[in-house]
Design a protein around this nucleic acid. Structure first.
Length: 705
DNA sequence: ATGCGTACTTCCTAAACAGG
DNA sequence: CCTGTTTAGGAAGTACGCAT
């Protein structure tokens, strides 16, 4: 036992050393990454400065941009070698930091013995909260005020011991968020799941299915998926973007507040984005407690004996319905497709389930159009947003949150619609949310996002004016104006991206001025056309190059972000390892303590065993003595027997009396044992013995008388 | 990183119960 | 019988953790 403990204890120093080494390694990596990060930032600033310089010499812009682009290209490849060079120059500072860290680590080792336990507890899962006497840490956001559930046989004590039961319930409620980042949010709403379903059933849908689907208010939306207007890439949302948007939601004003600007998501917006009807009865989807499960043919067919309608059940049902040939099966396919749309996209919740009310709505295909589905989606979403921004924290999981991304595209001028889809409906087909994600990543703050809303308004105004001009203008320059306008829109966009936009503005102004001069001269009409074409090409080239430079900057920014994230991860890992080391130390201490206790126990056990051996020895001696005595008694008895056989009964009786009186308590046990033995002894004649006993009694009687 | 299944928690209603 | 409280159980919501 002690050997095991000591071998474990011996293993600790080496393990500790290993962990220390790992921490050192991570620190080193962290420092290198930091250096890299700083280098990236410097590089970007340099690029920015250089690009700004180009504005002064606009004639050289193209050539300089070209050289810059090639340099950037080279730069990306050469970054590693530069970093290596930088690495060799890696400042004494970093080395000092590392040395300091090392010292700090060794210093802390002593101090932390006391402090670390608290730290570990507060960092960790708080599992000690219910054990100690100290006040428990603030509980995680409680979702409601429901009672803890009690089982049938356990609740008998509830009335008598209610407070205790409630307390137990509270303790149980302290959940461990071991795998969950503090700001983690999960949004179930996703278009990908529905797209996959549509891809799966597309080949199997017949004309009659489609006819029925077209009669439903969801056809504009479903057709976008059915006709492949939405790709898998278009479906991939960024949860962080949604989270950021939701964090701007003010539940009191029911508006999104981006800096000083605010905007609200209306049923009109939902209607435009998803192509859902706005007119009709209001359908309340939330707060349906007490709406019980109902039975109908449809429910019996697909959700028989089911308490809740889960996504898996709808999937299975759809498969079953697609195989069926009856009229009801065709209707069921449509119902189930709409249910899929509800569960995965429009009214999704965290559990991939759906309320019975919506199931009923889906069942009544002909009545479906009487509801204002845009309002229903908006209401459901706003109820989610209220919960999210309210007292319960950012645990939102339900509602059609993806629509927020498209709404942002529609209402701001952050990105431009996909080419060729500017006027298409529903609006969700117009936008590429991946592009929006890139844009939002580069956003500095919500004020900037707010400005993009203003920009969109101005653009709309200008669009109107430009359209009037287009009406008067010549046909041939319409395209140019369109392009100019787009570029103006682009240059309107504020923020960091204006690095290259700053170059475009003066260039384009001059280009336009020159073009108007050319156009005003009727003599040079032909020449102007040629020149115009040339300039157009030049402008296109310039635009392409600017675009390319922008992409490069974006890529560099992405790289910086990636490195920052990596750094963050490394930091986390280092702290995790540190915590682990502390835990190991703690464990070691514990094991040592246990080992001591075990040794003490062993010692006491040994003592008691030696004591036991001694007493056993003594007892063995006593038994041996007894055996000896017994042998003597037997011998004596045999002698007596012999004498009895030879001599008179009276002598034997006398001798017997004498023998009886001499027997000690110990001997009496042996004697009784002897008596039992005699009873079993075949050689001993019982009748004879009885006679002898009687004779002895007679002798005694004679003597007394 | 995202999707998804599912155990667990919370919310709500109605029945059962207790006391006046 | 009326009224307030407790308990049981169903529906809806939440969050963990595995799979992709």
């Amino acid at each position: 036992m002690a050997e095991d403990g000591s071998s474990i204890a011996e293993g600790f120093p080496s393990r500790e050393a290993g962990l220390r080494q790992e921490i050192e390694q991570h620190k080193h990596e962290k420092a290198v990454l930091e250096e890299k990060h700083q280098f990236e930032i410097l590089e970007r600033l340099k690029v920015k400065d250089e690009l700004q310089e180009y504005v002064a010499g606009d004639k050289e812009v193209i050539s300089k941009l070209e050289s810059r682009i090639s340099r950037l290209e080279e730069g990306i490849a050469g970054k590693l070698s530069k970093e290596r060079r930088l690495g060799s120059r890696r400042s004494q500072r970093l080395a000092n930091i590392e040395a300091e860290n090392r010292e700090h680590e060794s210093d802390e080792d002593v101090e932390e013995e006391e402090e670390e336990e608290d730290e570990v507890d507060s960092d960790g899962d708080g599992s000690t909260a219910s054990e100690g006497d100290s006040p428990p840490p603030p509980p995680p956001p409680r979702r409601g005020r429901g009672r803890p559930r009690t089982k049938t046989n356990e609740n008998l004590q509830m009335s008598g011991n209610k407070r205790q039961m409630k307390k137990m319930g509270r303790i149980k409620n302290v959940r461990k968020h071991k795998y969950r980042a503090p700001d983690h949010v999960q949004y179930r709403c996703n278009m990908l799941a529905f797209l996959k379903i549509m891809q799966k059933v597309r080949e199997r849908l017949t004309k009659s299915h489609l006819e029925l689907l077209q009669q439903t208010p969801f056809w504009p939306l479903i057709s976008a998926f059915y006709n492949g207007l939405i790709s898998e890439n278009d479906c991939k949302k960024s949860e962080s973007d949604i989270n950021e948007i939701i964090q701007c939601y003010n539940s009191n004003s029911k508006c999104f507040e981006f800096g000083s600007r605010s905007a609200s998501l209306t049923p009109e917006d939902i209607s435009a984005i998803l192509g859902l009807p706005q007119e009709g009865e209001t359908l309340r989807v939330t707060g349906l407690f007490g709406v019980n499960r109902y039975t109908s043919d449809f429910v019996e067919r697909y959700f028989k004996d089911e308490k809740r309608v889960k996504k898996t059940l709808v999937d299975d049902g759809l498969e079953k319905a697609l195989q069926g040939k009856r009229e009801t099966d065709r209707e069921d396919v449509v119902r189930l497709i709409i249910l899929e749309l509800f569960i995965t996209f429009l009214f999704c919740n965290a559990g991939s389930t759906i309320g019975w009310k919506l199931v009923r709505c889906c069942e009544e295909l002909e009545n479906m159009s009487r509801y204002s589905w845009a309002k229903a989606v908006a209401d459901f979403l706003s109820s989610t947003l209220e919960k999210t921004s309210g007292q319960y924290g950012p645990y939102s999981t339900g509602g059609c949150v993806v629509v927020l991304l498209f709404w942002l595209c529609e209402r701001s001028n952050l990105i431009q619609p996909v080419e060729g889809r500017e006027t298409i409906t529903p609006a969700l087909i117009k936008w590429n949310i991946q592009e929006l994600h890139l844009k939002l990543q580069r956003m500095k703050d919500f004020e900037e996002l707010g400005r993009s809303f203003d920009g969109a308004k101005e653009n709309q105004k200008r669009d109107g004016e430009d359209n009037e001009e287009d009406g008067n203008g010549t046909g041939e320059n319409e395209e140019t104006q369109e392009e100019d306008r787009r570029e103006e829109t682009e240059t309107d966009r504020g923020g960091e991206e204006s690095v290259s936009d700053d170059i475009v503005v003066p260039l384009e102004d001059e280009l336009r001025a020159q073009m108007s001069r050319f156009r005003s001269s009727p003599i040079l009409k032909t020449l102007s056309r040629d020149n115009e074409n040339l300039r157009k090409r030049k402008a296109t080239n310039l635009r392409d190059k600017v675009q390319y430079a922008r992409v490069e900057v974006e890529r560099a920014q992405g790289e910086v972000d990636r490195l920052a994230e990596k750094l963050e991860r490394k930091k986390e890992k280092a702290s995790r390892l540190k915590r682990k080391l502390k835990e190991e130390k703690k464990e070691k201490r514990k094991l040592e303590e246990e080992n001591e206790i075990l040794n003490a126990e062993k010692r006491s056990l040994l003592e008691s065993v030696t004591k036991l051996v001694k007493t056993l020895d003594a007892e063995r001696k006593a038994v041996r003595n007894l055996v000896k005595e017994k042998a003597e008694v037997i011998k004596e008895n045999r002698q007596l027997k012999d004498q009895l056989n030879q001599g008179s009964c009276s002598t034997a009786a006398k001798l017997g009396e004498n023998t009886q009186t001499q027997v000690s308590p110990e001997q009496s046990y042996v004697t009784s044992f002897e008596i039992r033995k005699r009873a079993l002894d075949l050689g001993f004649d019982n009748d004879k013995g009885c006679e002898k006993y009687r004779k002895l009694g007679d002798d005694k009687g004679e003597r007394n008388s």
